[in-house]
């Protein structure tokens, strides 16, 4: 068997020389080397024979049109694709600001209506109490009937400041207290209201 050429560079170029892919200078160098190197000339002949043998592989007919028909449709490049209209970021910012202001305003209004009414009602209740005590002299209701008892309870429960009463009211109040202390504790007087109350207690 013939010894291989020691010029590895030339041997590496032989397949490319076979396919005609070398540049002009490289092709000239290889041709010059083949003319003077028996080993590389033999190797070149071997490669040529191998290529012919391999190129003779029986390959089934390839239907180009069928393959092309099976290919996916080309996707247009981005520059050719229809673009979706894009809104300016400023519009989104403006819309967000309007929404924020509207929601914030509504929140403040709701909070004010809730807390504001609560505080006002408290004040109003106090003022109403004060006006009631000022306008209506508190009296000790006498529970002549069962239905009158809650009213009497309310009357006793609401106390006006003694200092707020004028002299006449104070005297009237003391008079009523005297009558209360003078009332018998064992048996109620035979008043219509008292009889009704006794009847209600006895269940008659």
């Amino acid at each position: 068997m013939m010894t291989d050429c020691s010029n590895i560079e030339m041997r590496e170029l032989l397949p490319d020389f076979l396919h005609g892919t070398l540049s002009g200078d490289e092709r000239s160098r290889v041709e010059a080397h083949l003319a003077s190197c028996e080993a590389c000339a033999a190797e070149h002949a071997l490669l040529l024979s191998a290529r012919r043998a391999l190129a003779g592989l029986r390959v089934p007919h390839i239907d180009t049109a069928e393959i092309v028909a099976a290919l996916p449709r080309p996707i247009p490049p981005i520059a050719h694709r229809p673009t979706v209209a894009r809104h300016s970021p400023m519009l989104f910012r403006l819309a967000a600001a309007i929404t924020f202001i509207a929601v914030g305003g509504m929140s403040v209004a709701v909070a004010r209506s809730y807390w504001g009414e609560a505080s006002v009602s408290s004040v109003d209740s106090v003022m109403a109490w004060r006006s009631d005590t000022a306008r209506d002299v508190p009296t000790l209701a006498i529970a002549d009937t069962p239905s009158a008892a809650p009213a009497a309870t309310r009357g006793l429960a609401v106390h006006a400041a003694i200092s707020d009463l004028n002299d006449a009211d104070l005297e009237s109040l003391l008079g009523e207290l005297d009558q209360l202390e003078a009332a018998p504790l064992a048996e109620p007087e035979s008043t219509p209201g008292g009889r009704a109350l006794a009847g209600a207690i006895s269940g008659s």
């Binding site: 391999l54 190129a55 592989l57 390959v59 089934p60 390839i62 180009t64 049109a65 393959i67 092309v68 290919l71 080309p74 996707i75 247009p76 490049p77 050719h80």
Partner: peptide
Amino acid sequence: RAGDERAATHLVARHAPSVAR
């Protein structure tokens, strides 16, 4: 890619035989 399907025909005709081999 630009939509020329004939280009695909040329590419297939160029490379299909060697790929098949």
